[in-house]
Amino acid sequence: MIRILLADDQALVRGALAALLGLEPDLEVVAEIGAGDLVLPAVLEHRPDVALLDVEMPGLDGLSAAAQLREEAPRTRVLIVTTFGRPGFLRRALQAGVSGFVVKDTPAAELAEAVRRVHAGLRVVDPKLATDSLVAGESPLTQRETEVLRAARDGATVAVIASRLVLSEGTVRNHLSSAIGKTGATTRAEAVLTADANGWL
Rank of each mutant, 00 (worst) to 15 (best):
I2A: 05
R3D: 14
L5W: 01
L6G: 09
A7L: 00
D8L: 11
D8M: 11
Q10S: 13
L12E: 06
V13I: 15
V13N: 00
L17H: 15
A18T: 09
L20S: 14
L21D: 00
L23A: 15
L23R: 15
L27H: 10
L27Q: 07
V29M: 07
V29F: 00
V30E: 08
G34A: 06
A35N: 02
G36D: 00
G36P: 05
G36F: 00
G36A: 02
D37V: 04
D37G: 05
L38C: 04
L40Y: 00
A42E: 13
V43Q: 05
E45S: 10
E45P: 04
E45T: 12
R47K: 05
R47N: 06
D49S: 11
L52N: 11
L53T: 02
D54K: 04
E56K: 15
M57A: 13
P58V: 09
G59P: 07
D61M: 09
G62K: 00
A65V: 14
Q68V: 03
Q68E: 14
R70N: 04
R70C: 02
A73C: 10
P74F: 08
R75F: 05
T76H: 04
R77G: 05
V78S: 14
T83E: 08
F84G: 04
F89P: 00
L90C: 08
R92E: 11
A93E: 13
S99M: 13
G100E: 02
V102K: 06
V102H: 08
K104Y: 03
T106S: 04
P107K: 08
A109V: 12
R116G: 09
A120R: 08
A120E: 10
G121K: 07
L122H: 12
V125S: 07
V125P: 06
V125E: 09
L129F: 11
T131A: 15
D132A: 15
D132L: 15
L134Y: 07
L134W: 12
V135M: 14
E138H: 08
P140A: 01
L141H: 06
T142D: 02
R144Q: 15
R144W: 04
T146Y: 03
E147I: 11
R150P: 05
A151H: 01
D154H: 13
G155L: 03
V158P: 10
V158Q: 08
A159I: 02
I161K: 04
S163M: 12
L167M: 13
E169Y: 04
T171L: 12
V172A: 07
V172S: 07
N174R: 06
N174T: 02
H175L: 03
L176S: 03
G181L: 09
G181A: 05
A185C: 01
T187R: 11
A189N: 05
A189S: 14
A189T: 12
E190L: 01
A191Q: 12
V192T: 08
L193K: 12
L193I: 04
T194N: 01
A197N: 14
N198F: 11
N198A: 05
